[in-house]
Design a protein around this nucleic acid. Structure first.
Lengths: 205, 205
DNA sequence: TTACACATGTAACACGTTACATGATTTT
DNA sequence: AAAATCATGTAACGTGTTACATGTGTAA
């Protein structure tokens, strides 16, 4: 209680999910993995630890105990107030941390062949993710999950997923058309003895 | 040398920057803050610690010592090989971690007023960041930094910045038009007595 | 009866931030 | 002479991952 206010997204993510309905650490781990994974990953040890802390602080409480040690938690009034405080009265941390973009700063260290291969894989990945979120959005739009406020909120996050991954796919496609190491006339020349490529097999993969 | 291969973006980010030219911890801290900050933040204690480790492992070496204890490092052949290995032969970590999107999952816990206010601020922030990157891109396109491969690479990262922030700005604007808590007819009705708004001050902050 | 999904946890370590600390050179 | 900037570092802590460990209930 005499603690300084801390910012920490996982804790508020858990509180937010529990604001919808009681859930166990196991449930929450799955929701994080399935829905929030790409936006906010969290493994079970971290989740269980945080739940213990939240309970100690009175922001959540045990709702029920089930079969194999299953412990479901319910959010308390204090917990609800805390998520709301976080949402409405704290600054969003705007750090992005996109490794795919960080790597692009160093593309000049790759051979044109390696770069094309890399960007193709990136495009494939981002496209697939965009499609996955698009399917989710369509299911939601078909009303498969109802249209309660929590579902409408989730729809927004899903839309962000679609748009972000589409943007990254477009970006990677565009990047593939830009000459980096070669002074270049138009696009990739495909063949060239390249000193950046190690002689023999790359080993793994 | 008998170490297991580790993945870790900061270390490769540093190696990548040093592949361009020798630099000190101070220089690298500034480059991370100025250019890579929004994509990959790193504070000086982490950078100095990592530089020490990289030097121990022979991936970089002291290039020169300057005025007030300044120590510039240069990448070694082993270091160059390591960045290249990372770029061409390791999987990109595709985790996004965007707090602004995580928060959207819980928008239903905010009053319409709070939500509009929040989204307005988000739009403002993302728009400003997009503009900042756009200015950088324009300077690069004007040739102000030359057109060497490292600059061309950086141009790609800058483009990603523009596109990602624009996407987020658009998304936030779109989100503001979607009814969450109200069953709604068209757009935001602006006034409504809302039980989600706590009566008095929320306390701290 | 065997395997699988459910369910929770600990320990060790890797990564990252904040606060503190120190001192040198340069600019005003 | 003071302030700003350069330049590096330590210590403590917060956050996040991996590997290990353990046991229960259900379905094949």
């Amino acid at each position: 209680m005499a603690e300084v206010p801390v910012e920490m997204s996982l804790r508020h993510g858990l509180l937010g999910l529990l604001a919808e309905a009681p859930a166990s650490g196991y449930d929450l781990t799955r929701r994080f993995a399935e829905v929030l994974g790409p936006v906010w990953p969290a493994r079970h040890p971290q989740i269980y630890a945080e739940l213990t802390r939240l309970a100690d602080e009175g922001l959540i409480e045990v709702a029920s105990r089930g079969p194999r040690g299953r412990t479901a938690y319910r959010i308390t009034d204090a917990g609800l107030a805390e998520v709301r405080r976080w949402l409405a009265h704290t600054e969003t941390d705007h750090t992005l941390r996109v490794e795919g973009v960080l790597r692009s700063v160093f593309f000049w260290l790759m051979s044109p062949q390696q770069l094309q291969r890399h960007l193709q894989r990136e495009v494939a990945f981002y496209t697939e993710m965009a499609a996955r979120y698009r399917r989710l959005a369509e299911a939601e739009d078909r009303g498969e999950y109802g249209d309660e406020p929590p579902v409408r909120s989730l729809r927004l996050a899903v839309e962000a997923g679609i748009r972000l991954y589409e943007t990254l796919a477009d970006w990677a496609r565009w990047a593939a058309t830009r000459p980096i190491t070669a002074p270049a006339s138009t696009a990739a020349p495909a063949t060239s003895a390249d000193p950046t490529e190690p002689a023999a097999g790359t080993g793994a993969e």
